[in-house]
Design a protein around this nucleic acid. Structure first.
Length: 485
DNA sequence: ATGTCC
């Protein structure tokens, strides 16, 4: 039941493209993109995936793709889709393998450019020593007991803070307060638990990183002030997720939900869209397991922040309070959540899937920390390691058009394989140094796969979401030093 | 993303 050959793309305006409903599609697809991005989007089949998602039962609104969209397992990465909790489904493919992959941004009182390249290099080297990274990395200094792991799965970052990793203020600055309350640790398999026990507080691999940057440009001074951002400021980005535990949860539940797809008579254009009704036992089990894995990721980022602070304290010989290392915000970009939204004048309870997409709630929403509520939710958009990152803010338009969602990053244009091929004979580390970015990676291969030209320019991505009005740029950051997995 | 093939 492929819809592939019949797909058309119609321009809505300068930044939105419609895939008109056809075949088994239950609604239109909408792609947010600049015209120059469309070839790449067609080429890697992301467009077919947007259309496929539109075939799923109970979809409300449109099957949407953000400008950083690219091919993913079943659903595209950069995809947003909401489903009725009564007639709709939940799907592991709509969340991704790295459950609650996300980013957090820490600010400081430091002027970044006063440090100089040598100090940045030493600082990154120190971070690299204190935070395990790479595929299969684990902490040598501790392994969680089964009871402690239950605490992590149930309480997320709240568990980490209760053990002395960070403070209560951190929790206010994390999406969901750093804890998914509907998490159900009992749904997490023994195998997933075993993978998680030694991996809490580790970075992982791929595009995960800890990055020291500088605020280079402020677009909205008032909002920047509310977020605690100023020109020239040293910042720290942390990008990681739920490691092997989340991966295993996804793997486990894809098997379960392949069966439920049949059991509930759901017709799919692609098996990778396997799913279950939100209200079914299987759907609820997956949501419970996903929530627990999400809590693992929240705790992971919280603990890494602690070691970032500790590293800075040792490096500068000052307390992290004095250095002003406070958490601006922590966002999820691989999640499905039950949220209330007004769609076409009706208040609806929806299961909103954001896979490689960021929540972007507008000013006044009760889910936003009080300190930021007057301006809107901070949206953190890391780019590739050589160019820029952005801080945006959520808008009313996002609430109206995208269930309060926006992009999550630059988005790949080269596959990992293509990147390796095109980087043959080059030194990416040297090229990065020439750009003024010191890079230290656990794996040389990963650095090559992550080189800037493997990604779209994040500025182009941000321009599209800004034009479309689904978030507003607040500040642009430039990387100075990066540790990669 | 991922003990990148149980």
């Amino acid at each position: 039941m492929s819809v592939k050959d019949r797909l058309r793309l119609e321009r809505i305006d300068g930044w939105r493209w419609k895939i008109p409903r056809t075949g088994a599609m239950r609604t239109d697809g909408i792609i947010y993109a600049a015209e120059k991005m469309l070839d790449a989007i067609r080429q890697d089949q992301a467009m077919d995936q947007v259309a496929n998602v539109a075939c799923l039962p109970g979809i409300v609104g449109y099957s949407m793709a953000m400008p950083d969209v690219h091919w993913g397992y079943g659903f595209p990465i950069g995809g947003v889709a909401a489903f009725s909790v009564d007639e709709g489904i939940v799907s592991p493919g709509g969340v991704g393998y790295d459950i609650n992959c996300g980013v957090r941004l820490m600010t400081s009182h430091l002027q970044a450019l006063e440090l100089g390249a040598e100090k940045i290099r030493d600082l990154v080297t120190a971070l690299f020593r204190n935070i395990p990274s790479g595929v299969g990395s684990s902490r040598k200094d501790f392994k969680l007991s089964e009871a402690e792991l239950d605490g992590v799965l149930l309480k997320g970052a709240q568990w980490a803070v209760s053990k002395g990793f960070g403070d209560a203020l951190d929790l206010e600055r994390i999406e969901e307060g750093g804890c998914i309350p509907w998490a159900d640790p009992a749904q997490v398999s023994a195998k997933a638990r075993a993978r998680g026990r030694s991996q809490l507080g580790t970075l992982g691999s791929g595009n995960h990183f800890v990055e020291i940057g500088v605020v280079e440009e402020i677009y909205e001074p008032k909002t920047a002030e509310v977020f605690g951002l100023f020109q020239g400021q040293l910042t720290v980005f942390v990008h990681t997720g739920s490691r092997g535990l989340g991966h295993q949860v996804c793997d486990d539940f894809i098997r379960v939900l392949l069966k439920s797809t049949q059991k509930y008579g759901i017709d799919l254009p692609d098996k990778q869209l396997c799913c279950a009704p939100v209200a079914s036992l299987e759907g609820q089990s997956y949501l419970g397991a996903m929530g627990a894995a999400a809590n693992f990721a929240f705790a992971n980022r919280q603990m890494i922040s602690h070691w970032v602070r500790e590293t800075f304290e040792q490096f500068f010989g000052q307390s992290s309070e004095r250095l002003g290392l406070s958490l601006l915000y922590d966002v999820c970009h691989n999640m499905a959540k039950i949220e209330e939204h007004v769609w076409q004048g009706q208040r609806r309870k929806l299961c909103v899937h954001r896979k490689g997409a960021t929540r972007a709630f507008s000013a006044g929403h009760e889910a936003i920390p009080e300190a930021y509520r007057s301006v809107g939710q901070p949206v953190l958009i890391p780019g590739d390691m050589g160019r820029y990152s952005y801080v945006l803010v959520g808008t009313d338009r996002a609430m109206e058009d995208t269930f309060g969602s926006t992009c999550h990053g630059a988005g790949r244009v080269l596959s990992r394989h293509q990147a390796v091929k095109s980087a043959k004979g080059r030194s990416i580390v040297k090229e990065m140094e020439d750009r003024g970015v010191f890079v230290l990676g656990a794996s040389k291969a990963t650095l090559v796969e992550e080189m800037p030209e493997a990604y779209k320019d994040v500025s182009d991505v941000v321009e599209v979401v800004a034009q479309a009005g689904i978030s507003r740029p607040v500040a642009k950051l430039r990387p100075l030093g990066v540790m990669k997995g």
